[in-house]
């Protein structure tokens, strides 16, 4: 289902993203394509390097965050809401351009501290279930949790079409679902905790090909 360009429901969002790429937005009336040109060229390989450090604010941003920074800074448009159809469509469209390319997983020196916090977070027990990410997705993947097979917990196919959601969703949505699953308090979208975890996951999944838009159960 994922490999079939047409049957993959995530491709609906990619198609939508392609339209948005050419649609002017904000007070400058500029479309993404005006600065970045054809996404197939300009955006190829970009998703393999995220999350990355935004030089201007010195903060960690993921692909969705980068799309919104571009909107507010350059297009002078309003930032798109988390998990909104348009934000998912644009980030899926951009990430789709890197399909098949390996995640770089490189951690630059200035992101080392964030990366280490992400690694700590990955190994820290949280919630009423008192579970860390590592206990399911590193030590017990492939076994079953009730009726479901535990995944290796890689983020290389996000934004992904999840059958449970019947919709496309971001990696942060999936991570928040895991927080909910272990009965821990869910961090807000774009919380440093989640971004650092995304950074650690990118390093952990280095070399895996980008599969966006993936299809997951």
């Amino acid at each position: 289902m994922q490999a079939d360009e047409f049957a993959n429901p995530g491709m609906l969002w990619v198609t939508r993203g392609e339209k948005l790429w050419r649609t002017p937005a904000g007070s400058t009336g500029a479309a993404c394509a005006q600065c970045h040109g054809e996404a197939a060229k300009g955006m190829r390989g970009v998703a393999t390097r995220y999350p990355a450090r935004d030089a201007h604010s010195a903060r960690l941003v993921n692909l969705e965050g980068r799309v919104n920074l571009c909107r507010t800074r350059h297009q002078k448009a309003e930032a798109l809401a988390h998990e909104s159809e348009d934000l998912l469509a644009l980030s899926a469209y951009v990430a789709h351009q890197s399909r098949g390319m390996p995640i770089s997983g490189e951690v630059p020196a200035e992101l080392r501290a964030s990366f280490e916090r992400g690694r700590t977070q990955y190994h820290k027990r949280i919630g009423q279930m008192n579970l860390a990410c590592t206990q399911c997705h590193q030590q017990n993947w492939g076994k079953t949790l009730l009726a479901q097979t535990i995944s290796q917990g890689h983020g290389n196919a996000y934004p992904t079409y999840r059958l449970e959601w019947q919709s496309l969703g971001s990696l942060q949505r999936r991570l928040r679902a895991c927080y909910f699953g272990v009965r821990a308090q869910m961090p807000a979208y774009d919380a440093p905790e989640l971004l650092e975890l995304e950074l650690y996951l990118a390093w952990r999944g280095r070399g895996l090909p980008i599969e966006t838009p993936g299809v997951r159960r």
Partner: peptide, 27 residues
């Protein structure tokens, strides 16, 4: 409503062609 349609661009007369459509909808 956004949809994707796939119909072969060319076909021979009498040929059986496959038609596919996907529509974005919450249902």
């Amino acid at each position: 409503m956004l949809a994707r349609v796939r119909v072969p661009r060319e076909a021979k007369r009498g040929e059986i062609i496959e038609i596919r459509i996907a529509i974005q909808h919450r249902m």
